[in-house]
Design a protein around this nucleic acid. Structure first.
Lengths: 216, 216
DNA sequence: CTTTAATTCAAACAAACGTTTAAATTAAAC
DNA sequence: GTTTAATTTAAACGTTTGTTTGAATTAAAG
């Protein structure tokens, strides 16, 4: 490998892409290294050579998408916060929620591979595997703290406990939406025609969660 | 075994209890038959002898709790529906949501073992394992249909598509709540004191989801 | 070209998985 | 008490799992 790394093989990327797809599709535990390396068309030992272990691979899969996404969400929330501070007013709840939710849903359309990852995010909190929950949690914790504090500023009339729980209800709605979009067929449950590009989903969920956060 | 079955061993029940606990804790795929039979203190072969397979065991674990719970939820929703019909008015959204949500959350306290199952429900829609999702889906489909139709009657001013999506947001909030309650430590994410018996949770979530369903 | 490092490869590892078997044990029926 | 059925048991089945190994191959450096 030379000093600028241009000749590095794309084995790592191919593994990351395959793992991302399969983790989203069948879960971390439900995906074997043989399935990953088979889909990526690389040797079985390549995962342990390049990543060390299946767990480290999981961490890299999450890190690759979540760091950029979280940077955007952080900037947007801080922007809402600073704008309100300049005007000497409290932040608007709807703006705060939009700052968090819109980048998340739009991320789904940022690339064809990113869509798989969004499905994976949707299961991250409730994943039966400890490792998955912990890694996701570690990456999202500071952002969630920022979201919480800003939401409290936006809703000073509500006790912090109440804001906390309603944020969790919001997270539940959003993550469930992330998970079902892309592989879900609503007709299976009840017959309703649905078109669901990211922008439409934003317009659907924002009024719901905003009303919920403001309630009473 | 005699004609009234009183002498039947409790092996099946012990397996069901252990499986319920472990499925809720580590997921279906993350739970081995050896872990189940070890916790139940029965022989490894007992699962295949009494249930035929791990998949049939899963189905029995779900059936045992979900049939009674669904019967209650169905009765409560139909009660709201019939009361409104008698008065010649549309059902109240809040009453409809309460009819579905309250029994679900109270079920958590119906017995010490039921709490584990509720955690399992909370992960049922997003479980990485196809089998888990399908079994749960099969049991809940008719009830969800009833909830959908009644919600549409309660919100005639909203298009059915909108009610459908908002019900999914509601399900997302509720199921996420079911999952995090019992093993979740909110302090891990952000420092907030929380007491959460079932009744308190009902009082927390109902205003949120009601406002969300009614929004605009 | 030669040397050296990085990567790929087929093969094997021990461990854990769900399931099956046949003998041993327990309980029921007569 | 004897016979018959139901249940439990220990052991093994064949797969699949994540990981490791050492040789073969490819690319980089001198």
């Amino acid at each position: 490998m030379n000093e600028n790394g241009r000749t590095q093989s794309d084995t790592k990327q191919r593994i990351l892409d395959a793992a991302e797809y399969l983790f989203a599709h069948d879960g971390y535990r439900g995906t074997s290294l043989r399935a990953i390396t088979g889909k990526a068309r690389v040797n079985l030992a390549a995962v342990n050579y390049h990543f060390g272990s299946k767990e480290t691979l999981l961490e890299e899969v999450i890190r690759r998408r979540l760091l950029p996404l979280n940077r955007i969400r952080k900037e947007r929330i801080e922007e809402v916060r600073e704008n309100a501070r300049k005007k000497g007013k409290k932040p608007d709840v709807k703006a705060v929620l939009l700052a968090f939710i819109e980048p998340t849903l739009l991320f789904k359309e940022s690339s064809s591979e990113a869509e798989n990852f969004v499905t994976f995010i949707g299961r991250s909190i409730t994943d039966p595997d400890d490792t998955v929950r912990q890694v996701f949690h570690r990456f999202i914790k500071p952002l969630f703290h920022l979201l919480f504090e800003t939401s409290c500023e936006a809703l000073p009339e509500h006790p912090k406990d109440l804001v906390f729980w309603r944020l969790h209800f919001t997270i539940g709605s959003l993550f469930h939406t992330l998970h079902i979009c892309g592989k879900f067929k609503p007709d299976d449950i009840v017959h309703v025609k649905t078109e669901m590009d990211a922008k439409t989903l934003v317009d659907l969920i924002i009024p719901y969660v905003t009303a919920g956060m403001r309630a009473k």
